[in-house]
Design a protein around this nucleic acid. Structure first.
Length: 241
DNA sequence: AAAACGGAGTACTTTACCTCA
DNA sequence: CTTGAGGTAAAGTACTCCGTT
């Protein structure tokens, strides 16, 4: 399906490196390459129908030089809008150019239009739509990333809840053992808790930071699951090695 | 400094065409 | 072979932002 071919063409990687470009495009523009867009490997649209390709080639043959914005509105005799399909070559050149700079100045637009035998307006529209597609893809990638973050935090939360429950049970069963046990080492220190953990006068229970309720209060009313192994520079969710 | 204006960009929509069941 | 649904890309429209006058 066309969708899958498009997906390949638009597939985003988090690499910031740029793929090698063809020379004819690089020579067209003198502005420095903008690298804020992600790499999008070019994969030829394999499933394009023969009919369309033939039509594209016909059109490419017919269109000689650059058209103007006024000429050939792309409408049929009855006023209906005729849909333009860009040829593979045209798309490839536009893609290369897009990787070079996702926005065009008027000179670049005119040069591209002339090179491809398109109207400047068509080049402009292609870039607008291309930016929209890139943004959409990036949004999907971001969404996936946040989903994974959410799953990780949910799992971490589950684990911590379980740990609290186990400690509560242990305290009920054998308080003496509980007070003398060495602290679990699965959590690192939350920076906001350093003040409390550095108190040298604190008791073992204080250092453990777990009250009868399973959590400690720092005097401000804020419940704080206190440190176990202190690492001030790391966040609460960082796992000790 | 504020208003008017134009150019360029984005968001959203429409339309034509393609693929597939 | 035909048809309808769903998807995609090209193009249209409305709006915002920003620099200039």
């Amino acid at each position: 399906m066309m969708e899958r071919a498009e997906d390949l063409r638009l597939s985003l990687s988090l690499s910031s490196s740029l793929a090698p470009r063809t020379h004819h495009v690089a020579m067209l523009f003198h502005a420095p390459a903008e690298q804020r867009f992600l790499e999008m490997p070019l994969v030829p649209s394999a499933k394009r129908s023969e009919v369309v390709v033939a039509a594209d080639e016909d059109r490419a043959g017919l269109r000689g030089g650059a058209g103007s914005d006024e000429e050939d509105g792309g409408c049929g005799i009855d006023g209906s809008r005729k849909k333009l399909r860009l040829s593979k070559d045209q798309s490839a050149v536009l893609e290369d150019s897009f990787r070079e700079h996702p926005t065009l100045n008027p000179r670049q637009k005119a040069a591209l239009a002339q090179q491809l035998g398109l109207r400047p307006r068509q080049v402009e529209v292609w870039f607008q739509n291309r930016r929209a597609r890139t943004k959409l893809k990036q949004t999907e990638v971001d969404c996936e990333f946040l989903k994974r973050c959410c799953e990780t935090l949910t799992e971490e939360n589950r684990r911590l809840q379980k740990e609290v429950q186990e400690l509560r049970a242990l305290k009920l069963v054998s308080p003496h053992l509980y007070m003398n046990m060495s602290p679990p080492t699965t959590l690192t220190m939350c920076p906001s808790c350093v003040r409390v953990s550095n108190n040298s006068n604190s008791t073992a229970a204080d250092r453990r930071g777990v009250t009868a309720g399973g959590a400690a209060e720092d005097g401000t009313g804020v419940v704080c699951h206190r440190p176990i192994a202190v690492r001030p520079q790391q966040s609460c969710v960082t796992r000790a090695s």
